[in-house]
Design a binder for these strands. Structure first.
Lengths: 292, 292
DNA sequence: ATTTTGTCTTTTATCGACAATAGACAGATC
DNA sequence: GATCTGTCTATTGTCGATAAAAGACAAAAT
């Protein structure tokens, strides 16, 4: 098959959620805007909703016939885009499975392993190469440089440079900049998780990304903001496969974030720098510990 | 056709240069190492050399029959890899041709324009996207963000951060590190070009890249070094299509480099920082002038 | 005992094809 | 007059196929 209809399936599932809370559905363009897909996809969704008896659809009238049941949803593993599947498989191989630095990466083998065409794997590797973990030998294979101590140190060196600058810039955002509200919202989630840390510590990973990305955005520099992708992906998989002491680690990081947030609000450069440095230092140590 | 044999043609041309200065050719593996290609390609080259009567080839004996003439070489436009062709076409479109920021980029149209398949264009765009000049809308087109003033400012901001750090690190390289010799060699070329500036000012572009890359390498950080690719490509095309006052600009930059080199050799952090800042400042201004 | 060559297999780079998805436009509906 | 729908076209994402190039291995030559 040429293309998996994962966009359709994923949007369909989200549409079931909308449908669950309403007796009727809005116009095609509005649905499209809400789900972030084109009208073509919306019409496929509506057609299927009608087909499985969830909806009567005639032009503008879209009447919900019954609430969706679990069986109406497409299974989760059919809604992931190919790029996501490839990324996960690949990261599992190189982060979780003990892949040696210097190892050759074979496009064809990877593709067969994942059950996909070579083109998609190739494009993934090209995209992924900017993370500095692999390198191409032209007309030949890719080389795995590995998730090594050096990698982590180089990564965090740049991260610290960038984040210190972004944090300093944050203090100069105008009073009415939406970032301040977002900061309030993020703080609230921090407190909520901390209050219920034994249960909710797993939510930290996502919150961490949200917070740091907000800070980096204050730099208004695309290179600094884009670089955060690398941090995010490394930490994302790092959290996912390295759960030792997760509760304690995350509780500490949450506390550090709160100090950091407080410093940002104070707009005091010294206070910001100190809080930022302190947090980045412990983040680096956490990362390094997971390597050796 | 599935693949152009540009590797063969390009290596063949370089082999003619080797052949011009010798009566015989070395072993296949050695030739391969010298030209940076596999033995398979070497054997194709040898076969063709024999075919056009430049060589008798029987196992180890490879006797040159005559000197190559211009007609023996493959034409230049057949030796560029597809990736190079695509890059040039694309850069001409967006830097030379007045492409508007926000413009959509169409893979199919680009491919037809360049006379190539869509896959290659696609892969190029993915690779190129890390330069921050284009952005992908998933399942839809690419958007040209444009070579704008903001782009130049964001680029130079990071460049300055990185280069100041690299320059500082340079001072700490051990006495016997090869970088010091390379620095001497680079300085010598500077002086040679300056002594003959009216004729040789065009050689500055390449030298500039060589010098700054050497400095960045002192950081020993792959992200810093890789970032220099972006600088290099931007300045490369910038020099190529913006020749106004090139002689004066390059003469100034050469002089600044000499001060900078001298500072590096002194290992005095303050002197280094001052020289580095001064040069980066004027480099930034030069770049900005070419935009508005 | 290396190094070189002959032969064969594997892998990459590139193409064209096709389903999924986006998007354009005119006519219909509020 | 604005928004919505029906219909049609254009573009992207993915695949399998194929020539170019890399590379493995054993036999041959130094």
């Amino acid at each position: 098959m040429a293309k998996q209809n994962t966009v359709f399936k994923e949007a369909f599932n989200r549409c079931l959620d909308i449908l669950a809370g309403s007796d009727t559905l809005p116009s095609e363009p509005e649905l499209g805007a809400r789900l972030g897909v084109s009208r073509t996809t919306i019409r496929s969704i509506l057609a299927r909703l009608e087909e499985i008896g969830l909806l009567t659809w005639d032009k503008r009238t879209k009447v919900v016939l019954r609430k969706p049941v679990p069986g109406d949803f497409f299974p989760d593993d059919e809604t992931d885009s190919l790029a996501e599947i490839i990324e996960r498989s690949f990261m599992r191989r190189i982060l979780a499975g003990g892949a040696q630095p210097g190892m050759q990466i074979n496009e064809l083998e990877l593709a067969r392993d994942i059950g996909t065409g070579t083109t998609s794997v190739r494009e993934f590797l090209i995209r992924f190469s900017r993370f500095g973990l692999i390198e191409k030998r032209p007309n030949s294979h890719w080389v795995l440089k590995g998730f090594t101590r050096e990698f982590a140190l180089e990564l965090t060196e740049v991260r610290e440079m960038f984040e210190l600058r972004s944090a300093a810039a944050f203090a100069h955002l105008p009073e009415d900049h939406p970032a301040w509200q977002e900061l309030d919202a993020i703080e609230a989630v921090h407190r909520a998780i901390l209050a219920d840390i034994d249960i909710r510590y797993g939510e930290f990973s996502e919150l961490d990304e949200r917070f740091h990305l907000l800070v980096q955005k204050a730099s208004k520099n695309r290179f600094i903001i884009d670089f955060y992708d690398i941090i995010a992906i490394v930490f994302h998989y790092h959290y996912q496969w390295n759960k030792a002491n997760a509760r304690t680690r995350n509780a500490n990081a949450l506390a550090e974030h709160l100090v950091y947030i407080d410093a940002l609000r104070s707009r005091d450069p010294q206070k910001i720098e100190a809080a930022c440095r302190a947090h980045l230092k412990s983040a680096r140590e956490t990362l390094l510990q997971s390597i050796n």
